[in-house]
């Protein structure tokens, strides 16, 4: 802890000192400083960039991007960044405006806005609102990463080959992720292909794996859960005898607990399928702290829970 704050202080002084004249310094050797908002972006970009980049993700494990609050370290990171990747499509809420501003001084890319618009999902009641959780559709995510890579190449034209190679290697891993997750999800029975979670984060996941997705809260976690939503979900669980519901690591589990107890009361026993990583990933240095690991964790958890027979 002490060490950390000392390092922080040093960084800060360094930051202040170099703030005025850092244009010339970042020449060849030092890696490009990348700042990503979500750790999904951060992890993927650091896989592609390898040693060429030094990635800082602003939103750590368990942090809900919809209600993220910046700290001074985050600001320093943003200031010193050579390039910034964010998700966009309102995932980061108010921060969107900020990134637009920053884009005047350094390259900034919204991954969600770099993909084909027709591939994006919109809210059923409100077609203007786009679902920002694009990383759950792996092919779409690849598309987004493709643009991220070209941004990196623009910044490091000499390293184009290395970056392309690393990207291709990573994309191969992603392809096997697609295969593996499709195998996992494909084995679920037709009538059990319903995914109930705390907020609407899994729209793309559902589209990719042909699952019906129901979130208690809307696309953003800012909305309060209404009694009506809870009730409708309970009814649906009971009618269709769905065996499991899921909590998310970055959201309070209270509303899901209410659904479970409500269903139990009306005679249908629902089990907690497990914890999914929706907007945040797992702890760093763990399997779930990587994009692939967290995706697989979700796929395994869902397929295991939905295959178990309820009653």
């Amino acid at each position: 802890m002490k060490k950390q704050s000392a390092a922080m202080g040093l960084m800060l002084i360094g930051g202040l000192l170099t703030a005025c004249g850092d244009q010339e310094q970042q020449a060849d050797e030092s890696p490009v400083k990348v700042v990503a908002t979500t750790s999904q972006i951060g992890d993927s970009v650091s896989e592609i960039g390898g040693d060429l980049v030094e990635v800082t993700s602003l939103m750590g494990p368990g942090v809900d991007p919809h209600s993220y609050q910046a700290t001074q370290n985050d600001i320093n990171a943003l200031q010193e960044a050579d390039i910034v990747f964010y998700n966009g499509l309102h995932l980061e809420g108010k921060m969107d405006e900020i990134f637009e501003q920053i884009s005047g001084s350094k390259p900034v890319l919204a991954l969600g806005e770099a993909v084909e618009e027709e591939n994006l999902l919109t809210d059923a009641d409100n077609p203007e609102v786009v679902d920002p959780h694009i990383w759950f559709d792996v092919p779409l995510w690849k598309e987004a990463l493709e643009s991220a890579t070209s941004e990196l190449i623009e910044l490091l034209p000499e390293d184009e080959e290395v970056l392309e190679d690393q990207k291709n290697a990573y994309f191969e891993e992603l392809d096997s992720l697609i295969e593996e997750s499709e195998n996992l999800m494909g084995s679920i029975d037709e009538e059990k292909r319903v995914l109930v979670t705390a907020h609407d984060a899994f729209g793309y996941f559902g589209r990719m794996h042909d699952l019906e997705v129901i979130g208690l809260q809307g696309l953003s976690t800012e909305d309060e859960v209404g009694i009506n939503e809870i009730q409708q979900t309970v009814n649906l669980l009971t009618e269709r005898e769905i065996p499991s519901v899921f909590v998310e690591s970055s959201i309070s589990d209270r509303s899901i607990q209410a659904v479970i107890q409500g269903a139990e009361q009306s005679g249908h026993k629902v089990s907690l399928g497990g914890e999914l990583y929706s907007d945040a990933m797992g702890e760093e240095e763990t399997e779930e702290g990587t994009y692939i690991g967290m995706y697989l964790h979700n796929a395994k958890t869902i397929s295991k829970a939905l295959q178990e027979d309820g009653e």
């Binding site: 750590g60 368990g62 942090v63 998310e248 690591s249 959201i251 309070s252 209270r254 797992g282 702890e283």
Partner: peptide, 10 residues
């Protein structure tokens, strides 16, 4: 929020 997982919902 920085201290790692588990704080969600506070």
């Amino acid at each position: 929020n920085r201290s790692g997982g588990g704080q969600s919902g506070l």
